[in-house]
Each structure stands twice: as C-alpha cells, then as structure tokens.
Design a protein around this nucleic acid. Structure first.
Length: 301
DNA sequence: GTTATTTGACCTGG
DNA sequence: CCAGGTCAAATAAC
C-alpha cells in the first residue's frame, strides 16, 4: 500500500529530474555553442522547463516551494522561554529568527575574525557543521554568529554559510563585507510555482524568504592568495563564464542525484518507511533544493 | 602564560 | 526521543 505511492513518487521524481537534466544539457550546449542551431527552445524556455521540473519534484514532496532557506525556515511563531529562567546557559540556543542570511560560497573566509566554538555532525551531511562566533564578542559584545557547512562538491569545496545577527564590532574589513542587510538587496527570487523571475542589480544572486537571504558568490581561485578574494568582478565580462560554470554545476548536481539515489538500484531506504518520511525525503529535497539554487544563479546572468 | 581549537556533555525545540 | 546549538574543560598552538 505504501509501496505503490512510494513507487509513483519515485517515478514522478525521476521523470521530472530526467526532463530537467535534458533541458540543462541543451542549455549547456547552447551556451557553449556546441550546436549551431539550438532548436526551437530558447535558453529562457529551457530554464523555465528546468524550473518547472523542480517545482513538480518539490510538490511531489508536498514541499512548500521557494521557502527553503536552510534552517532559517524555522522562523515560526517562536515563544521564547523567560530569558535567564534557565539556571545554566548551556544549550540554551536561540533559533535563528531575526537576522539570518545563508550564503553558498566556495570559500569559508569572509574577512571577519571568527572564533570556533563548536562542531557537530549533522544528519545526512557528509561534513560536520562548524559553529563560529565573532572574535570580538568578549571585548565589543559583537553578537554575530555563523555556521559553516561544507557541501559535498567535485574537486572544489563549497560551503553553505549561515550568518546569524550582524556585526556590531568595529573591526571590519571593508572590502570583504560579504553580506548585505535585507533592505539593501533587491531580491532575486525564483518562484517555482509561478515562474516569476526577478532580476537583481547586484552581482550577488539571492534567494530570500522573509528576513532571510540565500546568496551565491563566485570565487576566482586565481586571486585567492591575495586576500581580495571577494573583489567584485565586472558584471559584464564574467557573465558568460559564470553562466557556463553554473550550468555545469547544475549538471553535476543532476549527476549527483542520479548517482546518489542509485535509480537503477534498490536504495529505497530513502523512501521506505512512511513513519520516517520527513527524514527519508530530506536527501532528495536537499539535492533538489541545490538544483534550485543552481538554477537561480543562472537566472541572474 | 595566553589564546584558540577540539570535543563530549548538556540543553532545547520539535 | 532525537537532532542540532551551545558550553566549557581539556588540549594545542603560539
């Protein structure tokens, strides 16, 4: 009984993912000019189709589209216990609510001085999550926090960095300011339900959800040693390279899904237990969400 | 000696 | 009960 719905869900997902992957390949070919005639489908059409595939996949999960922003989606009606009511502050963590931002970047350096205060193995994550607070917490009371989660990548590591709170300390390195207040951004958001596309004037591409931002940065490794690794590139010249690169990433993400889920095999433990539905769907959701992000990057070009 | 990191325990929210 | 966020003692680095 559960098996049928699981199988149907798999079929839907696989079908949509294959469709999305095919569109990605076509798009990649068009951008690389491997085909003289790209056919009747414009890049915009292809990306739309990819987005539609994601939407379909996510709706298969009954997944609220365009709301994933990492753990920051925990922004629910939060009732806080009495501050100080706890005898010991240990473990008394506040859910990130007010001011959290998520960046996907290929370096965990951001120019700030951070002090690591914890590390945790995260379920379904290959790499542990590291917890940092601002070095100037003690002397200046800076409350900025960040979490660094290395994502599995192909050769070049990528990191999902969650910033919680803003720096109130003075020790900022101006040219490495890497995140913007929400009000400073024109949000670039793909709504996978209605395919609404908005363009950001910024070179940063961003997905937002309420008060949380997901942004993507590119990092020119050739400049990494100089320290100015976040120097903004001129938007015009980097576009093509960035687009190709991101589409390649999108393609790799598909490869990862198809490899990881072993579509021809029996890895149904992802989906087997209905009682474990949320955790078993997590891997798929997470990977598809990564695809969304890749796709969003493409839209920004 | 001071400061930063590691790591297991503790704590909370879901 | 579990997953994840934080604390703080132990340890390492300088």
């Amino acid at each position: 009984m559960e098996g049928n719905s699981t199988t149907n869900m798999r079929k839907t997902l696989i079908g949509e993912l294959i469709r999305g992957r095919d569109c990605t390949e076509k798009l990649q070919n068009q951008l690389l000019r491997r085909v003289v005639d790209g056919g009747p489908e414009s890049p915009e059409d292809l990306v739309m189709k990819i987005a539609a595939s994601f939407s379909e996949c996510l709706s298969t999960f009954s997944y609220p589209v365009s709301t994933y922003v990492g753990s920051a989606c925990l922004d629910k009606t939060k009732k806080k216990p009495e501050p100080g009511a706890v005898k010991d502050r240990r473990g008394c963590y506040k859910r990130k609510t007010e001011d959290s931002r998520v960046e996907i970047t290929d370096t965990y350096e951001d120019g700030y001085a951070w002090r690591k205060y914890g590390q945790k193995e995260i379920l379904h994550a290959k790499f542990p999550r590291c917890y940092y607070r601002c070095t100037h917490k003690d002397d200046q009371g800076c409350k900025a926090l960040r979490q660094v989660q290395q994502l599995e990548e192909y050769g070049s590591a990528k990191y999902r960095i969650t910033y919680i709170g803003s720096h109130t300390c003075q020790n900022m390195n101006e040219n490495t300011q890497t995140f913007l207040a929400p009000e400073d951004h024109s949000f670039s958001l793909i709504n996978f339900k209605d395919s609404g596309i908005k363009h950001s004037p910024s070179s940063l591409s961003t997905i937002t959800n309420g008060d949380t931002i997901v942004s993507f940065k590119q990092h020119d490794d050739s400049n990494a040693q100089g320290g100015n690794y976040l120097a903004p590139s001129s938007q015009g010249t980097s576009s093509n390279y960035g687009c190709e690169d991101m589409i390649t990433n999108l393609d790799l993400s598909y490869t990862d899904i198809f490899k990881d889920d072993d579509l021809n095999g029996e890895r149904d433990n992802y989906h087997a237990s209905s009682s474990q539905a949320t955790s078993s769907n997590y891997v798929w959701e997470d990977m598809i969400t990564d695809l969304e992000r890749s796709c969003d990057d493409i839209f920004q070009i």
